[in-house]
Amino acid sequence: MGFKLTIEKFDEHLEALRQEYKVYAPVILKGKGTFADTDTIRYKEIKSIREVEFKRKSSFSPKEIIIPITQTLFYFTENDCVEPKEDDKKILIFLRSCDIHAMIRLDEIYLRNGNEDYYYKVLRDKIKFVLMGCSESFENCFCASMGSNKTEDYDMYTRIQDHEVFVNCKSEELMNYFNIDKINQVEVSPEFVEANEIVVTIPENLDQRVFKSKMWDEYSSRCIACGRCNFVCGTCSCFTMQDIFYKENKNLGERRRVWASCHVDGYSDMAGGHGFRKDKKDRMRFKVMHKVYDFKKRAGYHMCIGCGRCDDICPEYISFSNCINKLNTAMDEVE
């Protein structure tokens, strides 16, 4: 059972929520697109549900909220280290089903991979999910093939219809912010995509023999190692470390972790000048196999969620879904 409210009434409750929560959602940023006079859709803090973009897929994943692009881990002096002061507010994020699945994969990497990542956990423990339904598939999506088109891991579901907000709230904590009369109670069920135009098939016999396939050769020239596919991906989680020293005193500074990319030059370089995966085809192979082979061997499910953002952003029109489908022919080749 759920309930419905006018947009104005919902925003009143949202304002009450915002006293204790930072509320993030995909919003349209006018004129902020890659090209002149184009828009982009990114996650920003909102004050009204009118700001939420329900009809189009966000250009970037919401992972930058929980894994900041640049994050200060601690400040250091000659004698001491001090952690940055944390914001006391909790976090509410509007997410589609695939992005909730992406968060589960990040949990696997940062919380269940041997040691809990302290900085990730501090933010993760504050977060609640608001599910955004998908009435139809977006361009380049293949979430149904990856099993991320549906989820029950949400705290609240919302959709706007005819100037009303329909809500299904599973969290008692969030429900306390809504004073609902029985006349407003209605049946509310999430909308999920059942199928996509793009269908991806991962070969059952996929193994490391595919490393020797000729399918990777084309990416030596096609890929330009910009790393955009990694940065918009909801499950890519690699970072590098930086120590910043202040000009006023070279013994004072801060340590940061910053997003990194397995496609970008220098990512796998080691002391002495040795580097793994110098050729761009090797980087593509590494990423693809990690998304649909290596991660599954450890976690039991695929890393890729099929959101299609990598296809959306690639300046060389490299299709990740096509690459995965080529694995079937590649395995026949090495067989």
Rank of each mutant, 00 (worst) to 15 (best):
D80M: 11
T70M: 09
S261W: 13
T201F: 10
I69A: 12
R50S: 15
G133T: 14
I127W: 00
K121S: 00
E248L: 07
T72S: 13
M270F: 11
K63D: 01
I183M: 10
N149F: 04
V27K: 04
K250R: 12
C229W: 12
M103S: 08
W259K: 03
E8T: 05
V27S: 03
V52E: 13
E139R: 08
H290Y: 14
K63W: 00
I183K: 15
F94Y: 10
K170I: 05
F94G: 04
E333F: 07
R96K: 13
D311P: 10
L92Q: 01
T6G: 14
K247G: 11
N322K: 15
M1S: 06
F295T: 06
F94T: 04
M132A: 02
S58H: 13
I224H: 02
H274K: 10
T77G: 08
I7R: 05
K150G: 02
D125G: 01
S48G: 13
T329K: 11
Y119A: 01
G306C: 10
R124C: 00
L17P: 07
F276E: 08
D332F: 06
A36T: 12
E187W: 04
Y120I: 00
N79E: 11
Y293N: 07
Y21R: 04
G31S: 11
C238K: 00
G275W: 05
R159M: 15
N325K: 13
D153Y: 03
G227V: 06
C304T: 10
G33T: 06
K9A: 09
L111R: 02
Y293H: 14
I91S: 00
V193K: 03
R309C: 06
Y246C: 02
Y267S: 08
C314H: 08
M270N: 11
K150Q: 07
F211I: 11
E83L: 15
K121Y: 00
K297N: 15
D311H: 05
I66H: 12
M215V: 10
D39R: 10
K182I: 05
K170M: 14
E164C: 06
S148V: 02
W216I: 03
E194A: 04
L95P: 07
R222C: 03
M146N: 06
Y219F: 11
G253F: 08
L252A: 08
E335F: 10
C262A: 01
C314Y: 12
V186E: 12
D282I: 02
P62L: 01
L92R: 01
E254H: 05
R56P: 09
V52G: 09
G253M: 12
I180G: 05
F60R: 08
S171I: 07
P203N: 06
T235R: 00
K291D: 14
G227R: 05
S137C: 14
W216E: 02
